[in-house]
Simulated assay, not measured.
Amino acid sequence: MASSPVRFGVLGTGRITRRLVADLQSTPGVEVSAIASRTAERARWAADSHGIPAAVSGYDALLARDDVDAVYIALPPSLHHQWTLAACRAGKHVLCEKPVALTAAEVVEMIAAADRANVRFLDATAWLHHERTAQFRQWLSTATPPPDVATAAAKQDELFLDEQPPADPAIPFRVGPLRHVSAAVSFPNPFQSGDHRLAADLGGGVLLDLGWYAAGMIRFAHGGLPEQVYATAVMRDGIDVRVSATMRFPDAATATLSCGFDTTTRKWCEIAGQDASIVCDDFTRPWADKPARSWVHEASGKVHTFVPPSETQTDSTGAGQSQPGTRCHQEREMIARLADWIRIDTAAESVTPWQEFHDQAVQTQMLLDALAASIDAATPIDLAERV
């Protein structure tokens, strides 16, 4: 017997709402039943634009509806904490835009409120749900990845076409002990007037916005927080528009972060181990006209190209070929994961699957807090003193 669809209500009608509403509506087992704005006119315009049945004036009114099981909070970051707590009190599950809040203390309180209310909470960091990211996890957690994970879509690199392909399609490689992570996220496009990212009191600035991705990748790769950070910022009209930072971790590993509102589009990372590096040029969202590729560079100079299994098929010669229309949709995967969590009987679960995502969100915000403190103090910040 099929389970009932998870019915989402949407808080907010801004620019960021448009893409995710379409993803909510196209995820199996999910529907959007209502959307709310501060004014009835804006709510009706958004509902009509997206084909949503109910237009609601006021966020409290949406939380009171019986046809809403979960909410997608698409408001400015300064309002995430307030409306997540309100949603939890109303018994609604929460998908919250990133950055989750303005401080790590707020994020901890939001997650605690969800736990008390026995509702699910997830931040809308979609790249964490892409199958390519699952490959990264596997490569970072094993010395030699299993063949079905490591090379389901591995291709012979163009630099080595004169070499004979191995009889075994598996490519044994080892990242080795982690040494350094670099993450850079930026774009040069100006914002429309009134965009919350231009207002410090609404959670604006590049560190909270694009820095969420870069800091998140660094935390993801290292699996924890650095001992010390040092950050500098270029300020303009009261907000940070470009941030650079260095970090040192307890095991002598390091990291660098770069993000900017005035720099060419970048969304890349390198995870460098002793024996090999994982390189990706679009980790936040795959380029629309390219497969979700990544590369492993071995210390010997050999390079391996990878594409996730869903984006390839094996032809009669055994070579991986891109197959249009099968690529992973990370936002839909994220939404489907939350919907699955909502259907879980927690009494039957010894380990809650959302804990790793909660830890990632809290520690990403803790890292951003420390970077902001370093910018303000113009000095390195020791995280041990802040935890």
Rank of each mutant, 00 (worst) to 15 (best):
F187H: 14
A361N: 03
H222R: 13
W212G: 00
G325L: 07
P250H: 08
D359W: 06
K302R: 14
L368N: 05
E333A: 14
L178W: 05
Q135E: 08
K98F: 11
A373K: 13
A2V: 11
S3Y: 01
L140Y: 04
T263N: 00
S374G: 10
R219C: 13
T254F: 00
D66S: 06
G238L: 04
I73Y: 06
I278K: 01
T256D: 10
V241Q: 05
D162M: 14
P188V: 05
K155F: 11
S182C: 03
H196K: 02
I375N: 09
T379P: 01
A87S: 14
P165V: 07
P165H: 02
A86N: 04
D345L: 03
M247C: 05
A22D: 04
P353L: 00
L159Y: 07
P166L: 09
R266E: 05
P146C: 07
G301C: 09
S244F: 00
G29F: 01
G203K: 04
V362W: 08
W83L: 14
L122D: 09
L178P: 15
S57V: 11
P353K: 00
F283W: 07
P324Y: 14
L161P: 01
E270M: 06
R44T: 10
L207V: 12
R236Y: 07
K267C: 03
S244D: 03
V30Y: 02
A319D: 03
E131Y: 14
V68Y: 02
V181Y: 01
F191D: 05
D148L: 15
R38W: 04
P28R: 02
W341R: 07
R248W: 00
P99E: 03
Q274P: 01
D69N: 08
E163I: 10
D369S: 05
A70E: 07
R120G: 15
M247D: 04
F220E: 11
S310F: 06
P324C: 12
T256H: 01
T39F: 15
L208A: 08
R65Y: 10
P226K: 09
